[in-house]
């Protein structure tokens, strides 16, 4: 079963490598939305460094919402999902494999690029360090929660985006703890509680969201 888990990840890697530009689009969207904020609120470095963590995190939320609604779409439409459902691997693990490969191909890129975003928003080096750490802990959670909406939306021609938006309120804890960890580090307060909370949110969603998403996929396969 673990072998199938790995082969799903391997296949998704190949697919995203060959299709390339969809993943790139997410990065571009992310970059673009971050660069729009200074245009909106003004170029003062002091202000930007203050609201920088929030800007990066809100952009991360939106870019994952906008891109995730199609994560199961192709496998659902061409029938791959049915083959997997008839195989020995439970759908819950399929969801986990999809989320993991998705995170490795997009989320990880955002984590690696986040120091750059920190720099252009003139955050301090400590803030940038914690931005990267919180992104590392938080982006997998965002993707896992997002799979719930995506699994429900998979059979819909219209309204798939709307369902992803329904998931948005569930992202609030990640946003709050992510930003407040960075704020704490900038103000020289220990950010440990926030990081621990982000970690526990991640553990929580690793266990629970595959269950919800697999249930959502089963509904749509009927």
């Amino acid at each position: 079963m673990f072998k199938i888990f790995l082969s799903i990840i391997k296949r998704d890697f190949k697919l995203s490598y060959r299709q390339g530009n969809t993943n790139l689009n997410i990065i571009v969207f992310f970059f673009l939305s971050i660069s729009l904020f200074p245009l909106g609120v003004g170029p003062e470095n002091e202000l930007l460094s203050k609201i920088g963590p929030g800007i990066v995190w809100v952009s991360a939320l939106f870019s994952s919402v906008l891109s995730l609604d199609k994560i199961f779409q192709a496998d659902y439409e061409d029938g791959s999902l049915e083959i997997i459902n008839l195989s020995v691997i439970p759908l819950e693990f399929f969801v986990l494999a999809k989320a993991l490969s998705y995170w490795l191909t997009t989320g990880l890129l955002l984590v690696i690029l986040s120091p750059i975003f920190g720099l252009i928003l003139s955050m301090s080096s400590k803030g940038i360090l914690y931005l990267t750490i919180t992104m590392l802990l938080g982006t997998p959670t965002l993707i896992l929660i997002g799979t719930i909406g995506a699994s429900l939306a998979v059979s819909l021609k219209r309204g798939s985006l709307l369902i992803s938006l329904l998931i948005l309120p569930l992202y609030i804890p990640v946003l709050i703890f992510g930003v407040s960890a960075i704020d704490a580090s900038i103000n020289n307060v220990s950010a440990k509680p926030q990081l621990l909370l982000l970690g526990s949110l991640l553990c929580f969603s690793i266990v629970l969201s595959p269950i919800a998403s697999a249930a959502g996929l089963r509904i749509n396969m009927e």
Partner: peptide, 26 residues
């Protein structure tokens, strides 16, 4: 389908509600 999907959303929301409440208080 809507009935089942809505049930999932309601449950996921209910599990998350205390976490959201806690984070907002924080």
């Amino acid at each position: 389908k809507a009935a089942k999907a809505a049930a999932i959303i309601a449950l996921v929301g209910a599990i998350n509600l205390p976490i959201i409440k806690f984070s907002v208080d924080w």
